[in-house]
Design a protein around this nucleic acid. Structure first.
Length: 890
RNA sequence: GGGCGCGUAGCUCAGCGGGAGAGCACUACCUUGACACGGUAGGGGUCAGAGGUUCGAUCCCUCUCGCGCCCA
């Protein structure tokens, strides 16, 4: 016998271990079944599970478990990401605690320490995914830095280089002075910052006392100025174009050029041009042939160089700003200082203010690779769900910039490029090949130096959908599972990851990496705030699992995953769905107590009893709706459909109405009801299994000995067939009858409650004007009706309606509860008045509608007919309630 | 400044051309033999505002207001 509540902790451990050991999570490449593949968005190998992961992986597991049960050859590809910057940062911080810098260790030793850290903490997140119940194909687990994936990275780099789609160039990049590395545009976070706009007077050469005023938010960059730009149409400066200004503090001559980049309405109308430290200025400089003067070192300090006036050499950029402003002020060259809010680029990982910085880096020609990806989405070869994310994808892809892929880090895939002493570049799969290339090019052996930089982590992530399947080997897995069916991810990495997988997949596999991209929302706290450690509002999924069970957490996240809305999570909500699991558990417990054991081979169509035919029909509808919801990625609809079926239909009505049959003396009816109840419960467990795998598996085994099977010698719900609504009988007559019973009981309960009948008191019910068919129904359902409505008897009304009887209308019949002695007459009068008013409103509304000739003439025939029927019903009900009220008043 | 999304019951959200819904919270009552992590009943909404299309608008269109996110 089952206990009263579901012991989730023990059950979760037991079943997960069985499942994993059974090998049933694994794909079956040899099978004839349709392949269905999802690749996991690889979490950071040294990370731990947060609520975003919990949502993301729950949804993937729901899909995978569903398709596995539906008979597909389901592959959920697991793995982790080396997260270059983040991981290196963690290890560096650990070393710093011991007073060690990575440079002290040297590259090889440092990388060895990172691997050590990976070995030590690398299992955390995969263990946590297991706690969540994720049915990943663990033996296939991959890591972006493992041998095979590293080979894929090298292969892709070399190919793209040889195709001219990867190149090395000296360009302005986003420089993170804390990491001493370039980062991509995407890793830059633009933050609104309150700063100042300094208006600085630059003297005009050869015209004593005349100045041109430039406005800047970064005065320290003036040391790198090589020009001044004004708008070509700006009359104020027209005569200055072609002349020179003199750079204060430095004395350099600055050409004054006309360029539309200068906005006459902004600041002073003239802008200083610093090509080495501003993306826009770089372009202006190029258009006008201005010099490029770099003034910063890799720490974003002013260079210790004769180029820089002595007092500022080696100063931090912010210190330099103060000094330069002070010196300009002293020289009377500051015209004014305005408070100014502007956006300042920050490194998303380091938080440091990013400097545009001129260096040699490696770039991917993203524009060329983007074109096929754009076309693929336009043609619907890959579809975004919800659809509107396609706009985000297009907006970025159509204006894509070269992707800077080199990082000045030690942790990552080292760039397979070697340099000869003369600077010649040899890109090769390995050093030996590079030597051969170099020897061939130079005619003799040359000394080669390997590029010290590593690749952006997203470079290897972009290959994930095919590298994990064995590419560049042409494995059977690659042929079978690429392209994947669906990618499940958050919108925050559409650019970082989805777009790049599309580009690489199309280029190297000549097909999209997945047919559908399902984009889910962010998980926020109950007030809608983004969860963050600094706000202290982080909810740990593991804590929720421990407290309420993995099933409850999974159900919550699934039920709340409505398209286009963030998930606002509160522990209270999880508690509610834990209660749902308990409800299901107790329904099963009830079935168990009444001998509801699944009958092998039992055919639902063989059911004769109205109640059983009704619940089988309701099950069919629930199965249909749940399946359709999953097909459309309507996770919330899937979960809610089953919630209502289990609680509102199966528990509230079916089991209650089945009690007489289950306890009764009619053996045939009892056996059929037992079989039907067990059948419906089994199907319900199957439908719920993708979202609540643990509780459903546990109940499924508790209900019967399921016999031998592939999971530690036993069968498992995990690979039972997905219920097929088409095989279930639909019986409109049974539906009408049971729904009548439900309405009858509900009406009586409402009257009792509202007119103040003591709950324990059984009262008689009389039916006035009931048709013979209705009285026959009543006979068939007498027992449950009496019990559920707490009635002493139910019979046709004999004679007149007694005084002081409570009444209600049910179809053609009037329900009469002759209770002059027990009911609160005033309360009953109020109740009737309220009911009458409700019908009167309805009647007024429908009369107005039907009186409108346009409505009758133009609305669809069936709509008009429906309105007439409703009007008649409302009028009849109102008349009878009025009569009831009149009798009550006597 | 450009784009996207959202404003429906106290809260969180479904619904999206023809009768305003759910969960939670709230109120009252109930130790009824599966379940108090439960049961029964109930209160609560000019569906942000204004115009338009339509026989009919919470739903479609336009504008306004408010909130959020992305991009510049």
């Amino acid at each position: 016998m089952l206990d009263k509540t579901f012991p989730h902790a023990e059950v979760e451990r037991r079943h997960y271990a069985r499942w994993e050991a059974s090998g049933l999570f694994s794909a079956r490449p040899e099978s004839k079944a349709r392949p269905y593949c999802i690749v996991i968005p690889p979490p950071n190998v040294t990370g731990s599970l947060h609520m975003g992961h919990a949502l993301n992986n729950t949804l993937q597991d729901v899909l995978i478990r569903w398709r596995r049960m539906a008979g597909d050859d389901a592959l959920w590809m697991p793995g982790t990401d080396h997260a270059g910057i983040a991981t290196q940062m963690v290890v560096e911080r650990q070393l710093a605690e011991q007073g060690i810098r990575r440079q002290d260790l040297g590259r090889d030793e440092f990388v060895r320490r990172v691997w050590q850290w990976k070995e030590q903490s690398g299992g955390t997140i995969t263990a946590q995914l297991r706690r969540l119940g994720a049915s990943l194909d663990w033996p296939r687990e991959r890591f972006t830095m493992d041998e095979g994936l590293s080979r894929a990275v090298t292969e892709v780099f070399v190919s793209l280089y040889r195709q001219g789609l990867i190149y090395r160039a000296k360009r302005l990049v986003n420089w993170d002075p804390k990491f001493h590395s370039a980062i991509s545009d995407l890793e830059v976070e633009n933050r609104e910052v309150k700063g100042h706009l300094w208006h600085i007077r630059y003297p005009i050469e050869g015209e004593e006392g005349r100045f041109i005023v430039v406005a800047t938010t970064r005065p320290e960059t003036m040391l790198g100025d090589t020009g001044v730009a004004v708008h070509p149409e700006d009359d104020r400066f027209r005569d200055l174009v072609g002349r020179h200004a003199i750079l204060p503090l430095v004395g350099r001559r600055l050409p004054i050029v006309a360029d539309a980049h200068s906005d006459p309405a902004k600041g002073s109308g003239a802008v200083k041009i610093t090509p080495a430290h501003d993306f826009n200025d770089f372009e202006v400089g190029r258009r006008h042939g201005l010099e490029v003067v770099n003034i910063l070192d890799r720490d974003a300090r002013l260079l210790d160089d004769p180029l820089i006036p002595a007092p500022y050499r080696g100063l931090d950029r912010f210190e330099a700003r103060k000094r330069i402003v002070a010196d300009l002020e002293a020289a009377g060259l500051i015209e004014k200082i305005e408070p100014h809010t502007h956006t300042v680029p920050h490194g998303d990982r380091s938080g440091a203010v990013i400097e545009p910085y001129l260096t040699d880096q490696w770039f991917v020609d993203a524009k060329t690779l983007a074109a096929p990806a754009i076309a693929a989405v336009e043609r619907g070869r890959t579809q975004f769900v919800p659809r509107q994310w396609e706009n985000t994808f297009f907006a970025w892809m159509r204006d894509i910039q070269p992707w800077c892929i080199s990082r000045q880090l030690w942790w990552g895939h080292r760039i397979p490029a070697w340099y000869a002493p003369d600077g010649a570049i040899f890109v090769a799969h390995d050093e030996a090949e590079a030597r051969r290339l170099a020897a061939a090019a130079c005619g003799h052996e040359v000394e080669l130096r390997r590029d010290p930089d590593v690749l952006d982590t997203w470079f290897s992530s972009a290959l994930w959908p095919f590298s994990t399947l064995g590419w560049p080997e042409r494995t059977p897995e690659l042929a079978r599972y690429y392209p994947g069916e669906v990618l499940v991810t958050g919108f925050d990495i559409i650019f970082f990851w989805v777009a790049r997988m599309m580009m690489m997949g199309l280029h190297f596999m000549n097909d999209v990496p997945f047919r559908t991209v399902y984009v889910h929302a962010l998980v926020r706290d109950e007030r809608g705030q983004k969860m963050s450690k600094s706000k202290g509002n982080v909810i740990d999924p593991l804590e929720l699992i421990e407290r309420y069970g993995a099933d409850a957490l999974r159900f919550t996240l699934t039920a709340m995953a409505a398209q286009g809305r963030d998930v606002k999570l509160s522990p209270q909500r999880v508690e509610g769905y834990r209660n749902f699991a308990t409800k299901l558990w107790n329904a099963a417990r009830f079935c168990q107590m009444h001998g509801c054991v699944p009958v092998p081979g039992w055919a639902p169509a063989s059911a004769r009893a109205t109640l059983n035919r009704w619940i089988l029909g309701r099950l069919a509808e629930a199965a249909r709706a749940a399946t359709e919801a999953l097909e459309q990625f309507r996770f919330d609809a899937y979960a809610n459909e089953l919630y209502h079926f289990v609680w509102g239909t199966f528990c509230d009505w079916y089991l209650e109405l089945a009690k007489p049959a289950l306890a009764g003396g009619d053996a045939a009816l009892r056996e059929e009801t037992r079989a039907a109840a067990a059948f419906v419960l089994d199907a319900t467990l199957a439908l719920l299994h993708p979202v609540m795998p643990f509780v459903t598996e546990e109940i499924w085994h508790a209900m019967a000995d399921r016999g031998p099977g592939p999971c530690e010698g036993r069968r498992t719900l995990m690979v039972e067939p997905w219920p097929d609504p088409g095989s279930l009988p639909r019986d409109p007559a049974a539906e009408a009858e049971v729904e009548w019973v439900v309405r009858l009981i509900s009406e009586v309960r409402a009257i009792r409650s509202e007119s103040g009948v003591p709950p324990g008191r059984a009262i008689p019910l009389a039916l006035k004007d009931a048709a013979p068919a209705t009285l026959a129904r009543l006979d068939r359902w007498r027992e449950p009706v009496l019990r559920l409505a707490r009635l002493s008897e139910a019979a046709p009304l004999a004679g007149e309606v007694p005084r002081g009887a409570a009444q209600a209308v049910l179809d053609e019949a009037t329900l009469v509860l002759p209770l002059a002695d027990v009911i609160d007459l005033a309360a009953e009068r109020a109740r009737l008045a309220k009911e009458i008013a409700r019908h009167a409103d309805e009647l007024r509304r429908l009369d107005a509608k039907l009186a409108n000739p346009d409505f009758v003439a133009r609305a669809a025939e069936e709509v008009v007919e429906e309105s007439r029927e409703k009007r008649a019903a409302a009028a009849a009900a109102k008349a009878r309630l009025e009569a009831a009220l009149a009798r009550l008043a006597v």
